[in-house]
Design a binder for these strands. Structure first.
Lengths: 202, 202
DNA sequence: TTAATTTCGTAACTATAGGTACGTAAAGTG
DNA sequence: CACTTTACGTACCTATAGTTACGAAATTAA
């Protein structure tokens, strides 16, 4: 059961590479559509067996939940770091836009955002994935709220919108940007749209 | 095959009510998620048999295509009418927002927008539905573009954004609104977000 | 070396959902 | 009334994808 981390000592040694499987699953779900990737495809690409995956993650649902966790940790965290910076509001805004429209090919990652893609398909997931989607979404809104509140107290936020609504506004704009990117709209146009949408705050 | 409209004259008379089936399918797809409704469920709710549906629509793909058509005709058309009005830009903008955040319960229709919901799941449909999604999407953008161009020539559009980008902007904002509505965000908040997003044009 | 333990992976099982074969029913035609 | 035509719907077929039973393999403990 691999209770904690190390020295099970007895029995056949484990060969399944959890991290490798999760990275494989992440790229599959992210590049494609999360609900269109069968477990067997992830097994093939990761070089693992199906029962192996089930032993490690319990179910399809569990695998998706775990994948969302590493997506948050390895991808979304970048954005949270930007939001947590203590630079002036305008500069953070610009950094946010630059980060959003960066060339994904160069960075070696797919277009779009896995979390938004999964939110758009809420109904198709199991309870674990669903709870994780909601948790990460709320987490994301929290980062926006804290950033906005700081900007407000620094008199850098030129809009009388309530913080929670403004957070929804940012989240919605980022979501649109990610969808447009996934649809193949150029990053130049997406940046123009984001700058327009965010211009109401400066 | 019911070639055109009338007088097949010979053979057992047809009992399948095409319009009724389409309305049933529309409500199922719209209220739920279009990819989560099995054909058999639509058959049950519409009181039709599976082979009956297949005779009429050819396939699951064909049924979805036909459903999108009546959605466009009976639902989206309302929005196009608003955009085609010759009222001042600001008033059309406000009418657009009101129409978007109208109480769906009272109107007896589900939250969200079927076309946006299907666009978010592009990969999960067959070729007919896919082509129809793209056609209606392009159609929708065209309505925005014509409206924007008229506003520009009337000097009512206070923004130097290219028309096609502005159309994408409108489309993106409406998409966000529909998704927020589907997620249960109050229409009041959605209206506030839309007004903020559109305030850049006035 | 044998037993105990743990993991491995092939080869199933199962449920779901799209799709259809085919015999029957209901109409007009001669 | 037989014959032709058209549509009906039950009962099946099939493919896919999540899931697991189970015997073999690899390791440590006695």
């Amino acid at each position: 059961m691999s209770v904690s981390g190390n020295t099970p000592s007895r029995g056949r040694p484990k060969t399944l590479e959890r991290e490798h499987v999760l990275k494989t699953a992440l790229m599959c779900y992210w590049a494609d559509s999360p609900t269109d990737v069968p477990i067997s495809e992830i097994c093939d690409k990761a070089g693992a067996s199906k029962p192996g995956l089930y032993r490690e993650f319990g179910s399809d649902d569990g695998l998706k939940e775990a994948t969302l966790d590493i997506y948050n940790e390895k991808v979304s965290q970048r954005r949270y770091d930007i939001l947590a910076s203590d630079q002036p509001f305008d500069e953070v805004l610009e950094a946010l836009i630059s980060h959003t429209v960066q060339d994904r090919k160069k960075a070696g990652v797919p277009n779009g955002c896995l979390l938004f893609a999964m939110r758009a398909r809420r109904e198709e997931f199991g309870p674990l994935t669903l709870a994780k989607i909601d948790q990460l979404r709320e987490n994301s809104l929290g980062h926006y709220r804290r950033w906005i509140d700081r900007a407000k107290s620094n008199k850098q936020f030129r809009c009388d919108m309530p913080t929670d609504v403004a957070a929804l506004y940012f989240d919605a704009q980022m979501g649109s940007a990610m969808r447009l990117q996934k649809e193949g709209i150029s990053n130049k146009v997406i940046a123009e749209i984001l700058r327009t949408a965010f211009s109401v705050f400066r």
